[in-house]
Amino acid sequence: MNTTTPSKLEKILAEGHFAVTSECGPPRGVNGEVVEEKANLIKDHVDAINVTDNQTSVVRLCSLAACIRIKQMGLEPVLQMVTRDRNRIGIQSDILGAASFGIDNILCLTGDHQHFGDHPQAINVFDLDSTQLIQTVKLMRDEGQLLGGFEMKERPNMFIGAAANPFADPFEIRVARLAKKVAAGCQFIQTQCIYNMEKFKTWMQQVRDQGLHEKVAILAGLTPMKNVGMAKYMKNRVPGIDVPDEIIERLAAVPKEKQADEGIKICIEQIEELKEEEGIRGFHIMAIEWEEKVPEIVEMAGLYPRPTVEISAN
């Protein structure tokens, strides 16, 4: 498989390895070293590190600055970018800025509504949506053009990703929506955290029926549960997440101090199971404020050591 960008993530996928990515949430303050500490915890066990962009609409150190730090550590960042807070001028400007630092991966998201965050009073922008952001990055990269028509001499050469949530409603349009993102130019997908394996597999079947798994690399999203409280919270309070009762029962069945281990165990079992699912090309492990557990998960799931790939200098 050919690669078109300098992205290490793209290369690993192209060589047929399961890719492993994880994420790093920047702090709600100016201490950028927090990002470096988190990155250091996982750097040997993942191929690329997503940096969230003011996730859940809570103001944090910006994704771009954090990505630059990660890049300067010699690691591979995935710039998450939501369209909630910037119009097309700001977005394109940040893409150019990111490319100037050699950030080779972008994850295009619409973003949570600010209703959920710490500034519900804010105006939301949503000048573009996630699909249009994909189109924009593709236009900039493949045509060397800005949305306004300006022709650039040098292009931001990014590997384009997006998210997909197989569990949101209505279920039957989820694959159609993925198809739209793929048609817009999306090359990799990191899914919403998977707990309901049966539903996920139904979704994957539909993905395969449309041949989408051959056009886009799907990384299964996983978040280990720390305890039964977290599982209940995710089930009842987080929109778009589907936690089956079996998971809650399983966690509840073990003593409190063992629940974290059980959560990790569930996550590893899921990875093992999903490795067999045709079309799954990797795993995106979102250990929320629990980054230190990522190496353990990766190792136990048989995904360690990570492959080395030759990266040509950009």
Partner: peptide
């Protein structure tokens, strides 16, 4: 001061 836009279309 910054306005509370919740009551505008930004609030849904």
């Amino acid at each position: 001061d910054p306005k509370d836009w919740v009551s505008s279309r930004d609030g849904g």
